[in-house]
């Protein structure tokens, strides 16, 4: 189960993901993300409600970043949940996903 809750705050659109971002929800997530990119100029994504994420989920996050970049826009991610941080840390992708997050030092 994955839900996208969009709210407006001070003119900014904040999309909050709640649930599992996995192979089971990847198709849905891709659609929701690309819809959001169509509708909103600069949506921000709140990842604090993502309680489960797998490779498919990471790919969708990377893909929407890439799509935004291709359109010369950006879609910042914020409030990474522990599950997301753990996986980004595991894949050493904190740099690629490019938003300031607090994570443990990379593998040393």
């Amino acid at each position: 189960m994955l839900t996208f809750e969009s709210t407006q705050q001070k003119g900014k659109v904040l999309i909050k993901l709640v649930g599992a971002l996995t192979i089971y929800t990847a198709v849905q997530a891709r659609k929701e993300f690309s819809d959001a990119l169509e509708v909103h100029a600069a949506p921000e994504v709140d990842l604090s409600g993502v309680d489960e994420i797998d490779t498919a989920g990471v790919q969708v996050l990377l893909w929407i970043k890439q799509e935004a970049a291709l359109r010369g826009r950006s879609i910042p991610f914020a409030f990474h949940s522990p599950a997301v941080v753990e996986v980004l840390d595991l894949l050493n992708l904190a740099g690629t996903l490019g938003d300031p997050i607090l994570i443990a030092p990379p593998h040393s």
């Binding site: 192979i23 990847a26 198709v27 997530a29 891709r30 490779t55 498919a56 990471v58 790919q59 969708v60 990377l62 893909w63 890439q66 799509e67 291709l70 894949l91 050493n92 992708l93 690629t96 593998h107 040393s108």
Partner: peptide, 26 residues
Amino acid sequence: TISHLFSLIHLPEGDAFNPEECYLGL
């Protein structure tokens, strides 16, 4: 201990991306 790790993810652009396929290399 994993001392270095690089993820190589080359995602196709736009609709060519199939979210249920794996594009990961390590």
